[in-house]
Design a protein around this nucleic acid. Structure first.
Lengths: 234, 234
DNA sequence: GGAAATGTTTAGTGTCACCTAAACTATTTC
DNA sequence: GAAATAGTTTAGGTGACACTAAACATTTCC
């Protein structure tokens, strides 16, 4: 429970990346980490050895890495900072949602916990960031139950958009144009065979989206009529 | 007028320090820079050579350094960031004025120009930071005419506090207790001989302050009666 | 005006975080 | 089950930024 000596920005980025990869595919492979961070796999090996030595993660050669409890705590602290900053920029300073990620990516390493808490309080302690990602609490708990992706929805189904990937600004702008953002309710009208495009009803419009894009959109099925709230809950 | 390739955080700190030292004492000596940044003089020599090579400053061996136009522009950009952040933290997020400096010291290297402009606009584009230091404009102009220090005021004189040094949090807390902050109007009631303490009238109180502390407080003499505005103008 | 004190620079190291190239190990495929 | 392929690690290197110790200038003092 030690205050965790200061981690450098690169180290925080490693932990965040490993946390994410672990969520989606068990142990994080060296190559996956390298790809996520746009660095050479060899560089990852070196860093992983160091971090394992610091007790932040466990490494089984050729088997990938997993975070220790301490590593997970550190990762969640960074993720909390990132998402609070995103939410604050959007709500308090009028940032467009496709630009908050980039700015948060730099600020998350510089902001103190006090600043993060003040920012969160100033915008009413939101539960999710502008892309619908849940904001971990100060003590490191998150509700990150996996959602279903739009690509997996059954034809005819209705669903509320809960979360979209925040990594690509152009993609966010495009989704925004289509009306696909957290809180929106969609209907899957049809799906073309052989990995073809999906036809989606958004409000009074029909949209075509490719399966790769649909996979980036996470939804929660809703039945019957549409509820009022346009914002993601949770 | 090139966008100035990205400077690292240490480089920005060097430029800021050199700018400050240059303001108060002509060319900046290696030792002064070292002291300001709490690093060894030998480290400064190395960095100075590098920065001179990049055209940010000029160096005459054993004679100190001066910023070039480009170096000054970069320094003012960083100073603008720092002071806008300080003002924003104080006004928008309720930070106490003795804590804004430390936070700004880290954020100034991570914030984009867009963020700085949005922050400034959100609090009404103030002209000074919470310590009374003038905020450079986007295009790098500042009104940094030297003020007089409280220590130099003549006995019986009245003056408005314009600016205090922001480096020491304990000092700021103490000044705050005494009622000495930008906008306050003081009277120098008396001065003990041999570098003795100054007696100062603040509102209805009389305070004793040592000459070293008084030298950290910059004032603008006012004559006759006290004006209403409690905030620093400019 | 020469020695001492002060200030500055050079030389040589260390750490962090990245890189490439080459060697090695594991897994997949035929 | 051996060969091809994919993934991982080692070895050696680079740049930025700090350090200490020692050499070198400049200024000050007697």
């Amino acid at each position: 429970m030690r205050p965790a000596r200061d981690l450098t920005a690169p180290v925080e980025d490693y932990l965040k990346a490993i946390y994410d990869i672990e969520r989606s595919s068990g142990a994080a492979a060296t190559t996956d980490i390298a790809q996520r961070l746009s660095i050479a796999p060899a560089s990852v090996s070196g860093m992983v050895r160091r971090l394992a030595g610091q007790g932040l993660l466990q490494h089984q050669r050729y088997r990938g890495v997993t975070l220790t409890a301490g590593g997970r705590r550190a990762a969640l602290r960074t993720i909390r900072r990132h998402r609070v900053i995103e939410a604050y920029l959007a709500r308090a300073l009028g940032y467009p949602w496709d630009r908050v990620h980039e700015e948060a990516e730099r600020l998350e390493h510089a902001a103190s916990d006090e600043l993060i808490d003040r920012m969160a309080a100033a915008i009413g302690t939101p539960a999710v960031d502008p892309h619908g990602a849940p904001i971990p609490s100060r003590d490191g708990t998150v509700d990150d139950r996996p959602l279903r992706s739009l690509a997996e929805l059954e034809v005819g189904g209705r669903a509320r958009v809960m979360r979209v990937s925040d990594e690509s600004a152009p993609m966010l702008r495009y989704l925004s144009e289509l009306g696909i953002r957290p809180g929106a309710v969609l209907t899957l009208v049809g799906r073309a065979p052989f990995e073809g495009p999906l036809t989606i009803g958004v409000g009074r419009h029909q949209r075509q989206v490719g399966p790769a894009l649909a996979a980036q959109v996470q939804v929660e099925p809703v039945r019957g009529h549409v509820r009022r709230g346009r914002r993601a809950r949770r």
